[in-house]
Simulated assay, not measured.
Amino acid sequence: MVREMACRKCKFVTTGKVCPACKSSDLTPDWNGIVLVVNPENSQIAQTLGITSKGKYAIKVT
C-alpha cells in the first residue's frame, strides 16, 4: 500500500516524492484531517485556508 504524504509548505497530500502543487520535496507522513477542494474560487473553506487550486489537502501537518 502506498503511503500518502503531506507537503509542509502547502499541505497538499500526495503519494509522490515531490509535491505537484508547489514542487517542494519537504513531505511528511505525519498529518491529520483532509479537505477535498473541488471549486476553490467559490469555496469559503478554501479561501479561509488560502487554497487556490483544487486537490486533496491536509488540515494539520506536523
Rank of each mutant, 00 (worst) to 15 (best):
M1C: 08
M1D: 01
M1G: 06
R3K: 05
R3N: 01
E4R: 08
E4P: 04
E4I: 07
E4L: 14
E4H: 12
E4M: 14
M5F: 08
M5Q: 10
M5R: 06
A6N: 00
A6E: 05
A6P: 00
C7F: 01
R8E: 05
K9F: 15
K9S: 12
K9V: 11
C10Q: 04
K11Y: 14
K11F: 14
K11N: 10
F12H: 06
F12W: 05
F12L: 04
T14R: 01
T15I: 11
G16M: 06
G16P: 04
K17I: 05
V18K: 09
V18H: 03
V18N: 00
P20W: 06
P20A: 06
P20T: 01
P20F: 06
A21C: 14
C22E: 05
C22Y: 13
C22V: 08
C22D: 11
K23V: 08
K23D: 04
S24N: 11
S24E: 08
S24W: 12
S25Y: 02
S25N: 11
D26K: 10
D26E: 10
D26A: 08
L27S: 00
L27F: 04
T28L: 12
T28Q: 07
T28I: 08
P29I: 03
P29N: 02
P29M: 00
D30Q: 12
D30F: 14
D30A: 09
D30H: 09
N32F: 15
N32K: 15
N32D: 15
G33P: 01
G33D: 01
G33N: 07
I34L: 15
I34N: 07
I34K: 12
V35M: 14
V35A: 13
V35W: 15
V35R: 12
V35F: 15
L36Y: 13
V37E: 08
V37W: 11
V37T: 02
V38W: 10
V38M: 10
P40L: 10
P40M: 07
P40K: 06
P40F: 15
E41P: 02
E41K: 06
N42P: 01
N42C: 11
S43C: 15
S43D: 09
S43F: 15
S43R: 04
Q44S: 14
Q44M: 14
Q44H: 12
Q44T: 05
I45D: 10
I45P: 00
I45G: 03
A46L: 07
A46F: 13
Q47D: 07
Q47G: 08
Q47V: 00
T48W: 15
T48K: 10
T48Q: 13
L49P: 02
L49Q: 02
G50R: 02
G50S: 03
G50F: 13
T52F: 15
T52S: 14
S53P: 03
S53A: 07
K54S: 13
K54V: 03
G55M: 03
G55N: 00
K56L: 13
K56Y: 07
Y57W: 02
Y57F: 06
I59D: 09
I59S: 12
I59K: 12
K60T: 10
V61N: 01
T62F: 14
T62K: 13
T62H: 11
